[in-house]
Design a protein around this nucleic acid. Structure first.
Length: 313
DNA sequence: AATTATGGCAACCGCCTTCGC
DNA sequence: TGCGAAGGCGGTTGCCATAAT
């Protein structure tokens, strides 16, 4: 008797997610969080397995995701971290805010591996590649040593992990940007700035600001004031999430968009989510619209309550 | 223009780890 | 301490878009 599957797979949908499903998942998580992935599909009305929902959210729908190509710096970091950690993609990803393990893994397999090979570097050992028969002889010779080497490496790796955990040393970039200071944004960590909120019941001309409450105080220069999450829940309860629109910053028709009288900051980039078929435009969400913000490690969103448009300030 | 090959990436699968009882 | 459930992780698959023929 094998282990029971994570969920009852009968009648569950597989394959690519539809916009409707994404919508359901986002709406559910934004209102309720994700207390239990197993129960989430039933509660949200999705015919998916909990794992599938989790994966979709983590790898694709999470608002703090930074999509698009990895920068040169990020790529170098992946290479360096891979040299230290091996295929521990989630650990590598934890050092790259806004990137997922899956994304990094894919990028490694499709781009970086080739790049390294082209440069004559073995992507697995990070050592110079040997040519043809030389390589073969080298491989055979190494096969015998591999077991011992593996043991050694495992021990070293264990020590490295221990050290990393012990020191919990944040990795800093050349410009002093400490990436470990950028926490991933969880729904329950999203707070609303009611004082400037745009709300039917209060002030039709204001905007909702959502900030990441977990941002360290050292990087709050661009962070706005926040209110407890129960107020955010109240807000969500009151407004009933009907739709979320992400408006692309490069949307040529942007100037013609009616923001339902909300006073949007001209500098704000917006993304229209549900008017498009391809959610990949979410990639704009975290893509360095404002260097000072990126540097501060504090991202912000604004919700236009009428259409629930999230904006990065 | 049609067909085949290739590359990229989202999603799945199954094992491992963690957590709660 | 042991067990089961749930979450997390890494490897792999399969679909789709694009390039090559």
């Amino acid at each position: 008797m094998g282990r029971q599957p994570c969920c009852d797979k009968v009648g569950l949908k597989k394959g690519p997610w539809t916009v409707e499903e994404d919508k359901k998942l986002i709406n559910f998580i934004l209102t309720n969080g994700h207390c239990c992935w197993r129960a989430l599909p039933k509660l949200s009305g999705l015919l998916r397995c909990g794992k599938s929902c989790r994966l979709r959210w983590i790898n694709y729908l999470r608002p703090d995701l930074k999509r698009g190509f990895l920068s040169e710096y990020e790529e170098q970091m992946v290479i360096d971290l891979h040299a230290q950690l091996g295929n521990r993609w989630s650990k590598i990803a934890s050092h790259l805010p806004g990137r997922t393990d899956n994304e990094i893994k894919n990028h490694w397999n499709t781009h970086i591996k080739k790049k390294l090979k082209k440069m004559g570097i073995d992507p697995m050992t990070h050592k110079p590649l040997l040519e043809g028969s030389q390589q073969q002889a080298h491989d055979e010779k190494n096969t015998n040593q591999e077991d011992q080497q593996t043991k050694k490496e495992e021990e070293q790796q264990y020590q490295l992990d221990k050290d990393l955990e012990k020191n919990n040393t944040p990795i800093s970039t050349d410009d002093g940007f400490c990436i470990d200071e950028v926490p991933l944004l969880n729904p329950h960590e999203i707070f609303v700035d009611i004082s400037s909120a745009h709300h039917h019941t209060s002030d039709d001309n204001a905007n909702f600001n959502i900030s990441n409450s977990t941002s360290p105080s050292s990087s709050t220069s661009s962070c706005i004031s926040s209110v407890p999450s129960d107020e955010f829940s109240k807000f969500l309860d009151e407004i009933e999430i009907v739709d979320i629109k992400w408006l692309s910053s490069d949307d040529s028709s942007r100037d013609n968009i009616n923001y339902n009288d909300a006073k949007f900051n001209d500098n704000v980039d917006t993304m229209k989510l549900w008017d498009i078929n391809d959610l990949s435009s979410l990639e704009l969400f975290m893509n360095d619209h404002d260097d000072s913000l990126v540097g501060s490690g504090c991202s912000r969103m604004v919700i236009n309550q009428d259409s629930l448009t999230f904006d990065i300030l």
